[in-house]
Each structure stands twice: as structure tokens, then as C-alpha cells.
Amino acid sequence: MTVRSTLLALALALTFHAHASSPIGVETAGHVRNPGAHTLPAGARLSAAALAAAPDAEAYMLGAALLRQRSLLPQTRLKAGLLFDLETIASQEDSPELADAAAQLARELGDLPVTGRESQLLDPRRLEASSAENRPSLEGDRLVYPGRPDTVQVVGAVVQPCRLKHQFTLDAQSYRSACPILPAASRDDLYIIQPDGKVEQLGVALWNRSAPMHLAPGAVIYVPLSATKIRAIAPDVNEDAVRFLATQVLDAPGVSY
């Protein structure tokens, strides 16, 4: 090894060590006792950030959200690609009902922010007990603890988005039936986005019907565009729409984007 390469390796090692030993700045908001900026020691885990936030009794743990700077760029690209595909579908003059549905969906999704949300357990005590979930904190992390909502939303290929009262006895298909769908909507399936950002696809037709699925307060039901109608134009648009919707965050005091 030459003197130059030795010095370069040493410089890189020192830079890495300095970065690894630097304190970590995070921010907490929503229903917490300690909102605002916090400085954590190098190597701190997410449980340390959650404990620093000190969520109060109003915090809805299932909807708690971790927002990370590293996810902003890929989510910005996801949104741009999604809107491009929807606008492409909206330009199809030979299918006006599909075009109108795509244009409406593009407007609604275009108004949503890019958040940087990553799916993550944020209950402080449960994090401490789970080494798999208790990932390292990163510089710039934001932890948001919303209040518990009392509604379920139905969005996508619907006449207009619906916000319905949450009822434990209702399954996903019952909520969808209460919100009129567009002619271009799929009659075969729908997607469920739970408040923790987890997604599941359900069959709702006679030939593929899934078992009834109950939703948590704050869940979102996405009614997809008909797969048959979009297959030759933008076959992934429904999956991309659901991925983007899963990054959204429930309303929380003191939180803006």
C-alpha cells in the first residue's frame, strides 16, 4: 500500500468515526409531553427518541409515524411517476369514463404531501422489548404521534372521497358499499391501508372474495381503477397509488409539511 492510499484510508476511517460518534438530532410532535427538538447520543435507538417524546394518553400508537429525510427523494419520485401515469390515462380520448376517473384521482393525490414516512413501531415500551423493531435513530428523524380518529376514509375511483364513522362491526366491503364508486372502478378488489401504513389487497367479487377484514380507526380504503382498463396504459398505477397513500400521516397537533 502506498503512503497516499494509507493516508486516504486513515482519513476515511477518521471521518467515519467522527460521523458515527456525533450526537443525533431528532424532532417529536403531536400528542407528546416533550414536543420539539431532542439531541440523542451517538448510536441511540428509536426507543430513545420515543422515550424523549413521552407520548401522552391521547397518542394513538397505531397511527404513530416515523418521518425520515432519506425517504423524501424516493417518495417524491414515486409521486411524480404516479401523477405522470394518471395524466397519461386521463389523456385517453377513447375511454372518457376512465379518463375522468384518472384526472380526478390525479388532482386528489397531487394535493397530498411527500412526508418521508417509513412504517415503524413507535410505542416506547414495545420498542425497548423488540430488538428487531428498535432500529437506530437517524439524524433528522421526526416522530409524530396523532390522536385517535373515529373515521375510516374511502378514496380512489369513487364519486368523491368519503369519510365514514368507524364501526368495529363493519368490514372493508361494507364501508366501500357506503361510498358510490365510479364506472371505471374495479369490481374485483380493493386495498386497505391501516393507520400503521401496512397495506393489504382484498378480493370483493364472487370469484375471489376474501374473508371479512375489520379496519382500525383511521384506516383508508382505496378503490382501484379497473385493472382490465389500465393494463395496456399504466398497469402499476393502483399499486403506486397505494404505496403513496401509505406514506400519509394522520392529523396531529403542531405538524405541518
Results as ranks from 00 to 15, higher is better:
134 N>T: 06
255 V>F: 02
140 G>W: 02
50 A>E: 09
212 P>V: 11
19 H>L: 13
221 I>C: 00
218 G>Y: 05
219 A>I: 09
155 V>W: 02
115 T>D: 03
7 L>K: 08
192 I>M: 08
138 L>N: 11
146 P>Q: 14
19 H>I: 04
140 G>H: 05
225 L>C: 12
157 A>T: 13
168 F>N: 01
105 L>R: 08
208 N>M: 02
163 R>Q: 14
247 T>G: 02
5 S>D: 11
211 A>Q: 07
99 A>I: 08
82 L>T: 12
150 D>R: 14
191 Y>M: 13
181 I>R: 14
88 T>C: 04
59 A>N: 06
200 E>M: 14
244 F>P: 06
118 E>L: 13
207 W>N: 04
137 S>N: 07
120 Q>I: 11
195 P>V: 10
109 L>C: 12
129 A>F: 04
51 L>S: 10
249 V>G: 00
196 D>I: 04
89 I>R: 09
83 L>Y: 05
11 A>G: 10
60 Y>P: 14
41 P>A: 14
59 A>S: 07
71 S>P: 00
133 E>P: 13
191 Y>C: 05
28 T>D: 00
9 A>P: 09
80 A>G: 03
109 L>Q: 12
234 A>H: 01
57 A>L: 14
12 L>W: 10
235 P>Q: 14
180 P>D: 03
205 A>M: 02
15 T>G: 01
218 G>T: 11
38 H>M: 06
161 P>A: 06
255 V>A: 00
10 L>E: 03
144 V>E: 00
50 A>P: 09
75 Q>F: 06
86 L>F: 04
199 V>I: 15
179 C>R: 09
73 L>H: 05
162 C>T: 13
232 A>P: 00
78 L>M: 10
